[in-house]
Design a protein around this nucleic acid. Structure first.
Length: 216
DNA sequence: ACATTAAGTGATT
DNA sequence: AATCACTTAATGT
């Protein structure tokens, strides 16, 4: 599918007219690249050179950090209106990505070239605020994640995880496997299966193959 | 019909 | 709560 400056501008106006000043929207439209990603694609891998930063129009993106022993740790998800905040630093100091960013649900986004990002910081107040806000939100989210790890038992973490998924995917019907949940929470599939079974008995969810209905 | 993958279960640490 | 070893069930070819 082809796109043009006007198309990007319309998209940005639709999603960000309350966030960005007009001049900035115009400038992003001229320099941005509209792109769609399908579920399962990899946006950025660890060690990748950063050339562009995505601004998400809709969809769902997952950000992971991996340690030396190929263990992945889920950092957070990005959705409509979010950007990959941690990548800004990579761009500005030209370092490589320390994170893996994959597409959880089909996503539309606008990519900004790295060199513009720094320029806009001095030029547009709304851009500065947007970036600082992004960091702030990510930080809050990480704080929350750490709190869960430190204080909640696995059964609560599983339920919290499901609630979060429902929120992110805007649906109580999740298509997810027990294994995926286990990976995100760093536990084994067997344990997740048992905890989910318990939740089902409590009447909080309904299980099926590759799907979980979270009942409200 | 067969192979593959997801999920369930009892026993053990 | 993790792991093993195995079973059962759903799905794809």
């Amino acid at each position: 599918m082809q796109y043009d400056v006007k198309f990007i501008k319309d998209q940005l106006t639709a999603h960000f007219k309350n966030v960005f000043e007009k001049g900035l929207i115009n400038e992003i439209s001229k320099n941005g690249i509209y792109k769609t990603y399908e579920k399962g694609e990899m946006l950025i891998d660890i060690g990748d050179e950063m050339t562009h930063i995505p601004l998400i129009l809709n969809g769902l993106i997952k950000v992971l950090r991996e340690d030396q022993h190929e263990d992945e740790i889920l950092l957070y998800f990005l959705e409509e209106g979010d950007t990959c905040a941690i990548s800004f630093v990579n761009c500005i100091n030209q370092s490589k990505s320390m994170f893996r960013v994959s597409v959880e649900e089909d996503t539309e986004c606008v990519l900004f070239p790295v060199d513009k990002i720094e320029e806009w910081i001095t030029k547009y107040k709304t851009w500065r605020i947007f970036i600082i806000d992004s960091y702030h939100n990510r930080l809050l989210e990480l704080g929350d994640a750490i709190r869960s790890l430190a204080f909640l038992k696995l059964d609560d973490r599983v339920y919290k995880y499901l609630a979060k998924q429902v929120d992110l995917k805007h649906s109580g019907k999740l298509s997810i496997t027990h294994q995926e949940i286990a990976n995100d929470l760093h536990t084994s599939r067997v344990v997740v299966s048992r905890l989910l079974k318990a939740l089902e008995h409590e009447g909080k969810i309904k299980l099926g193959r590759n799907k979980i209905d979270v009942l409200v």
